[in-house]
Design a protein around this nucleic acid. Structure first.
Lengths: 266, 266
DNA sequence: ATTTCGTTTCCGTTGAACGGAAAATCCGGT
DNA sequence: ACCGGATTTTCCGTTCAACGGAAACGAAAT
């Protein structure tokens, strides 16, 4: 074994499919542009193997080479990923409603779905006046501290909830809830009220209000949130607007031919 | 050796990488949800091969299974594609400027880049009042009839321009320009004026005004456009606004640490 | 000029990928 | 509930694509 220090890597690196996945995942951590040897190092694959695979991927546009000859994720991957029903597909029908919400609040409007035990943010509208957020589109984030996460967690299968609350809850600010029992009670409130408030859980100057998005079968498939600067408005006063927008998306999803209901079995 | 000119439909289905690419590309044409045998049929691969590959992809979240057991593109692919500098990376810095433009016009605001000899749309903002467009995010479109396409083509390497104008120009409406010489003159105007107008080239009720987006080195890396209902405003009156927004994006790109300049050699 | 670091080519070995065949499962029809 | 056709999944012997060590090549830095 080489002295590579990757802990998160998958177990199965025998198949080409697995190698390709590890190779592409190398771009997730760190910068968006990598040299061949950086890819080899981060993916834990042999140089020659990476060289061959990267060559083929580049030929097909899955990777591209920049002016400095570095490799970057290419458009071909973007084109295929654009077809993901829970990603851009969902975004497509949600956008007009998010737009409305943005106009009213002038603050970050976020749309997220659950992947395993984390949130993946699918879309975010932000103007230049919006308060800064630590999330990135296509990026993961723990569920408990975020508004969308609370909604998704509240409506997730109980096994998922168990597992998430069994793990230590990461602290971001002095307000972050780290007691599983407290969070459990918050989740019950979220289910009762139909919306969630995350008060300075991620950054000390922001809070978010979130509401669930349902598919045709009544399952929660996503969550919508607005991120506000702390102190600017009373959170609960925005709940109706967020819920309205979320319901608008839900309705659009039900009537759309392309059902976006999906489950990630734990 | 020399880069293969054969373009899209590569006959190289020997390598696993190629097979995976063909497999995933099966989702491009037609619906977003496919059964195993549909994937096998569309990709041209053997059932057992597809079965094995699809199984592994599903394990990693690159594909997902819906409630009806059909396969769809999964979030893992979306997460990786989100790192593409010319895709979501570009979108991220462009969004606030696009937002501004949307507010002023209340119409479709589009951002596109060139891939080979076509446009790939990276982002589109649209309200409910906007006119319908035939483009899709992550989708391809011929360059000559679209606003963004005209800008990208005008600033593309001359070989690209040659090839595009050598091929027959597809007609969408009675106004679509199909004479290469006419288009060539339009492209010269685009370079001189700093913006492009596509008048009812794609649909008879819409026209678009587009301007180039530059990276730090002065190369055109993208194009921004507004799609208007025909007759609502005089196109040239919007040119300054579009150019302003495009320049804003250009400036943001230059100062960003992550250069998004990229070339796709012909 | 020499070192260093990254990239690319070469080639013999090997096991992952392959796909035909058959079993298992699903599904609409009766 | 029962049947027949279509779809999905498992099994397994064969083979060729994938592999990676070694060495040549290229480009900056010293």
């Amino acid at each position: 074994m080489a002295p590579t220090r990757e802990g998160a890597a998958g177990r199965d690196d025998r198949s080409v499919t697995g190698k390709l996945f590890m190779l592409l995942s190398a771009f997730r951590s760190g910068s968006a542009e990598l040299t061949l040897s950086e890819i080899a190092h981060r993916s834990g694959l042999a140089m020659t193997t990476v060289h061959r695979l990267v060559g083929e991927l580049t030929e097909r546009g899955v990777l591209e080479r920049g002016s400095d000859r570095r490799y970057r994720v290419g458009l071909a991957l973007f084109e295929i990923a654009a077809l993901a029903p829970r990603g851009p597909g969902l975004r497509e029908v949600a956008l007009p409603y998010m737009e409305d919400l943005y106009e009213v609040t002038r603050e970050n409007v976020q749309l997220g779905v659950r992947a395993d035990e984390e949130v993946v943010f699918v879309e975010r509208l932000a103007g230049r006046a919006s308060v800064g957020v630590r999330t990135r589109i296509g990026g993961r984030f723990p569920m408990p501290p975020t508004g969308v996460g609370l909604v998704l967690l509240a409506h997730a299968p109980s096994e998922v909830r168990q597992r998430v609350l069994a793990a230590p809850l990461r602290r971001f600010t002095s307000h972050t809830l780290t007691d599983p029992e407290r969070v459990r009670r918050v989740l019950a409130d979220v289910r009762r009220d139909g919306f969630a408030v995350s008060d300075r859980q991620v950054t000390s100057d922001a809070l978010s209000v979130a509401a669930p998005v349902f598919d045709g079968s009544g399952a929660v498939v996503a969550a919508l949130s607005v991120v506000l600067r702390f102190g600017s408005v009373r959170p609960s006063s925005l709940a109706p607007a967020v819920r309205m927008a979320a319901r608008g998306i839900s309705r659009a999803l039900s009537s759309a031919p392309d059902s976006t209901g999906g489950s990630l079995a734990g």
